[in-house]
């Protein structure tokens, strides 16, 4: 049976096609147009990659911020359940999932059967999310792909104390004026996000093994900063951005 999981995020739409225990195709598109148009486009591209037709999809489950607007899907499930399912499928030893996406971050604690026990999210504040990193990268005129690597080359970490993304940006600008080396500022930025996630983690408690998902998991500097702050090793899937969509596909597979 072939099923699809669609994760409609605030910045990108992710699709995973699944046949039983095998991933047929995955696809990521940046969300720009109306959610449903974008989701259909992303699905069609994935179908083309896997060389199958839309009619062959037996069940479609959506998740993410825009999940309710997708009319061609059969069902929608919350992000926490889908991320938990996806991460647990990839790493059966996972007990904690840290997801840092473009505009939200969440920490999910699972029991040994992969069922969600504890959940904390943050979708009000930009500090501690991908968009924060993006804004800071722009302020420092480096590309978002490079920030992680560069932050590891710091000599000493610059202090970024603001809790707010807007104020933190002005702090970064004053560091630039003061002549603080760029890599030190970047290390400080990564640390401030890690600090934020650490604060959230105190609400649910971190249990090993920890899996990190979401776009920010592609940033090696963030992984290192978080590992240092949380005092544990983070397991990062090969394609961290599609874990939510994978989870949705798994829900679709199991609901038949």
């Amino acid at each position: 049976m072939i099923v699809a999981g669609i994760d409609v995020g605030s910045l990108s739409t992710k699709v995973v096609l699944l046949e039983d225990d095998r991933i047929l195709a995955a696809n990521i598109l940046t969300t720009g147009e109306e959610g449903v148009v974008m989701a259909r486009k992303a699905t069609d591209e994935a179908l083309r990659k896997a060389n199958i037709s839309f009619d062959q999809l037996e069940y479609i489950v959506t998740t993410g911020y825009g999940r309710k607007s997708i009319s061609f899907a059969k069902e929608s499930k919350s992000e926490m359940m889908c991320h938990a399912k996806g991460a647990y499928w990839l790493f059966p030893s996972a007990r904690t999932v840290i997801d840092i996406g473009a505009e939200s971050s969440k920490i999910i604690r699972l029991n040994k059967n992969g069922v969600v026990e504890d959940f904390v999210g943050n979708d009000k504040c930009a500090a501690g999310t991908g968009i924060f990193l993006d804004t800071m990268a722009k302020a420092l005129e480096v590309s978002i792909e490079e920030v992680g690597e560069l932050s590891l080359k710091h000599k000493e970490k610059a202090m970024i104390s603001s809790m707010c993304a807007v104020f933190a940006e002005s702090e970064v600008v004053s560091h630039v004026h003061r002549g603080t080396p760029r890599n030190d500022i970047l290390a400080g930025i990564h640390d401030s996000i890690a600090e934020r996630i650490f604060g959230m983690s105190n609400r649910v408690g971190i249990m090993d093994d920890v899996v990190m998902t979401g776009g920010v998991a592609k940033n090696i500097g963030m992984i290192k900063a978080l590992e240092e702050k949380l005092g544990t090793i983070l397991h990062v899937p090969e394609h961290p951005r599609v874990v939510g969509a994978l989870g949705a596909a798994l829900v679709a597979r199991d609901s038949k």
Partner: peptide, 11 residues
């Protein structure tokens, strides 16, 4: 399941 609805901000 324990669900935390809300956020942490400067205050």
């Amino acid at each position: 399941m324990i669900v935390n609805y809300g956020y942490t901000d400067g205050s």
